[in-house]
Design a protein around this nucleic acid. Structure first.
Length: 571
RNA sequence: GCGCCUGUAGCUCAGCUGGAUAGAGCAACGGACUUCUAAUCCGUAGGCCGCAGGUUCGAAUCCUGCCAGGCGCGCCA
């Protein structure tokens, strides 16, 4: 693609800055950044470069701005440039000056906004990683949707993203899971049981128990010793839960490149090797940790442990790698896992975690620094909690899981598009109050319908045009400079801003920006639609407006697809 | 006690890494369908940007200290 008008203007100004600073020894040259002013009286673009320059040149900003304007050579499409306020340069474009973008959009189609990623940096993106002890809950759903959209976004902006799910199929929880299933199996056999507090209460445990009984002989489990039985049932239950989780993910349109099992790390000896390596590097010592602050640990007893010197690498306390019984801690496996990613060639990792894992970031990064020398890896994005409500009232009960509302229940009730879009409308740092009734509402309260309606509406116009026998002109024959109404200009500016928005969103790992953008784009379209009739006698203008609509539909579709939301042509 | 996140209109949230008069939606009020989809649009009203200092030409944005809410703080994952 050739340079955009914005780039040309930026370059023209930057050239002048370079000349002005030629005789001055500055640390660095300030860079020109064009912004879109909020008030349209301030022109199409505004630039504040005179302000930072004023200090360096020891002149007042307005004077600097004048010097710049005297020397700058703007491209043809610039109509005027004025100095305003404390020293802003406001640039106005000729009417229809930027409308060529519409043709670019139609020519690029689905790839408008994207850049080639065939040689892009490989990024390992780990998200969801819900424990295989039950169905996904709504909080997992938020992480899943954010992660998948971020992957799409980063792939669109030049990275090569490898999506990975870490299965925590080792540890005590699997024993609890196995026991829960075993109890339900006995129950089905008419044996009286007491179901302990710590066990998993949900109905899905009964489903698994039923399935095991259907495919296996109960007596064979009875005959096993406890360890063997726990192992066997744990394996079966994890497999069943992973099938369920994959299905939950499929329902919202998410697939992973890789599912990575924690158990394999233990079996292959990677965890042991990791500990041996750290021992050899003298990064482990025997010590006693101080008691935890905050809520009092009632049965606290000081004890000696083998501790990893994570404090040498930025952590605030050293961390144990082995439990009292000699088995590895979750932390040990987790750093072995991240080290494994590194060995697989990923120098850049992003993990998406729930807010309750926030305290875990420093220690993993410290461990990674010790092991690989990488700074700030993995890059961790914390997604804050989701509070479910129904008509504003907190809502926590679930039929299937017993203690929490499952993602699939919510998807079933409000639909995939609504779940995906709504989860993307807020920054991950803010807690999310997800209201089931609001998410189901088919009105302006629900942003997903607002944007989908815009897309469907455009297609209604296109269908109407076709029905009336309008032959659409070739793209290159359309005179887009006829699009001069305020609403058209606003809409075109929105379309023009799309690639920059994506770039910001990708670099800052803020996929929610896409949702915010689509809502603004849809608003710009709806507004245009009401004031500018498309199908009309003035053929040239009609053709220009049809082109504008097609470009708008294309961008809405592109943006929605990054969020995994459909763009219906009729509603 | 310490760490991370949050605090913007009655409610839910934006605010493009310091810019010009802080913006949307919902709720309230008033308008717009014999015309391409009213799941829409236009208008009115609504703000000590949690509080107090500081940094500077300029602060919702950066720094410090408070206040409030969420999450976390030895062998769970």
């Amino acid at each position: 693609m050739t340079s955009s008008l914005k780039d040309l203007i930026t370059q023209a100004l930057q050239d002048v800055v370079t000349i002005l600073l030629a005789d001055i020894d500055t640390g660095k040259t300030p860079s020109v950044v064009l912004t879109r002013p909020k008030q349209k009286e301030h022109g199409d673009y505004a630039v504040n470069i005179a302000m930072p320059l004023a200090g360096l040149l020891k002149q007042n900003p307005r004077q600097v701005a004048e010097t710049i304007l005297a020397q700058v050579q703007f491209p043809e499409a610039v109509a005027s440039a004025d100095i305003a306020g404390p020293g802003f340069i406001n640039i106005k474009l000729k009417a229809g000056g930027e409308t060529d973008i519409l043709k670019d959009i139609l020519q690029q189609g689905g790839s408008y906004g994207c850049v080639d990623n065939s040689k892009g940096e490989a990024v390992n993106l780990e998200f969801v990683s819900a424990n295989p002890t039950g169905p996904m809950h709504v909080g997992h759903g938020r992480g899943a949707v954010v992660g998948d959209s971020l992957a799409n976004l980063m792939n669109a902006r030049g990275y090569k993203v490898h999506k990975e799910y870490y299965i925590n199929d080792a540890g005590n929880q699997i024993g609890v899971l196995a026991n829960s299933v075993w109890l339900r199996m006995q129950e089905f056999q008419g044996i009286e049981i007491t179901f302990p507090d710590g066990a998993y209460p949900g109905d899905y445990i009964k489903e698994i128990a039923r399935e095991v009984l259907d495919t296996h002989d109960f007596a064979s489990f009875e005959a096993m010793d406890e360890t063997r039985r726990a192992q066997k049932l744990g394996q079966l239950a994890v497999a069943a839960n992973m099938t369920m989780i994959r299905n939950d993910l499929k329902e919202i349109g998410i697939e992973f490149n890789q599912y990575f099992s924690e158990k394999t790390l233990h079996q292959s000896g990677k965890v042991t090797q990791l500990i041996e390596k750290l021992e050899a590097d003298k990064l482990i010592y025997t010590g006693t940790l101080p008691p935890p602050k905050g809520k009092e640990v009632i049965d606290y007893k000081p004890m000696e442990q083998r501790l990893f010197r994570t404090t040498d690498f930025g952590d605030d306390v050293d961390r144990p790698l082995m439990k009292q019984d000699g088995t590895a801690t979750y932390f040990a496996a987790d750093i072995a896992y991240h080290a494994d990613k590194f060995e697989r060639g990923f120098k850049h990792m992003i993990d998406i975690w729930g807010a309750d894992h926030g305290g875990y970031i420093t220690r993993v990064q410290a461990a990674m620094k010790a092991l690989t020398g990488l700074e700030k890896q993995p890059e961790v994005l914390l997604v804050q909690m989701v509070n479910l409500t129904r008509n504003g009232v907190p809502f926590k009960m679930s039929k299937r899981a017993g203690t929490f509302v499952t993602l699939s229940e919510v998807v079933e009730e409000v639909g995939r598009d609504a779940v995906r879009f709504n989860f993307m409308t807020r920054r991950i740092e803010s807690q999310f109050d997800f209201d089931l009734e609001a998410a189901k509402a088919k009105d302006a309260e629900n942003p997903v319908y607002y944007v989908q309606y815009a897309h469907a509406r455009i297609h209604a116009v296109l269908r109407k045009a076709e029905a009336e026998g309008v032959t659409q002109a070739k793209v290159e024959d359309v005179d887009t400079s006829l699009l001069t109404s305020d609403e058209a200009s606003k809409l075109i500016k929105m379309l023009l801003a799309y690639p920059d928005m994506l770039d910001t969103a990708a670099n800052r790992r803020e996929p929610y920006r896409i949702a915010t953008y689509i809502m603004q784009l849809a608003a710009a379209f709806h507004s245009f639609y009401h004031k500018n009739r498309v199908i009309m006698d003035d053929v040239a203008l009609m053709q220009a407006r049809l082109l504008l609509l097609k470009a708008t539909a294309q961008v809405i579709k592109n943006a929605l697809s990054l969020l995994g939301v459909s763009a219906p042509e009729a509603m």
